[in-house]
């Protein structure tokens, strides 16, 4: 069952290495993924429009680090919690919640109504980002496979297995099965 309500937490066994390993590979990997997504979906930046230059703090509460998203530069940087630079807008929630929103499994307003998602700062920028990503119908699992075509078959199997084990929605599902 996918984390349709965004209430699945990351297994503790995965959190421990994240606490001790350096963050630069995370920043490099996520920025490469962001560049790939923005190249494949130019409509995202069109929808974000004048808010492209805003900085977004993505405070994923069950990760030991925070993310800072800069859409105009297609950059995502991981920062130690508490050391992240100031952002124009802050969105806080669980990783499962963020992934569920991104994959069209969960509605952002629903998470907000339930208190599972908090937002602060520039609301116009938050709405522009949310609406742009929702319209793009992203599939992170597929994007990762396309980025590494030689490894696509094992990656596909690994993503599916990880999804089953954790409940985290790592791919865009057939939404008729989710609803």
């Amino acid at each position: 069952m996918l984390a349709a309500r965004g209430d699945v937490s990351i297994p503790r066994i995965l959190i421990l290495p994240m606490r001790v390993l350096p963050l630069w590979p995370v920043s490099l990997g996520l920025s490469a993924l962001a560049r790939r997504i923005l190249q494949a979906h130019p409509e995202i930046l069109s929808r974000i429009d004048k808010y492209q230059s805003k900085g977004f703090a993505l405070d994923i509460t069950d990760l030991p680090f925070a993310l800072h998203l800069d859409p105009a530069r297609a950059a995502v940087r991981a920062w130690p919690r508490g050391a992240a630079p100031p952002a124009d807008a802050r969105i806080s929630g669980t990783l499962a919640g963020f992934l569920a929103m991104l994959h069209g499994v969960e509605d952002g307003d629903t998470l907000f109504f339930s208190g599972a998602l908090q937002i602060e700062g520039d609301m116009s920028a938050v709405l522009a980002l949310r609406n742009a990503l929702d319209d793009a119908e992203l599939d992170l699992g597929a994007e990762v496979q396309r980025a590494l075509p030689m490894l696509a078959p094992p990656l596909r199997a690994a993503i599916a297995r990880f999804e089953r084990l954790t409940g985290l929605p790592l791919r865009r599902p057939d939404l008729s099965e989710v609803y």
Binding site: M101, G104, E106, D107, G108, R130, D134, D135, Y179
Partner: peptide, 13 residues
């Protein structure tokens, strides 16, 4: 109309 496609899909169905 301000809600996501997840909301639309669930409510419409």
């Amino acid at each position: 109309r301000q809600r996501s496609r997840a909301y639309v899909g669930q409510i419409v169905r």
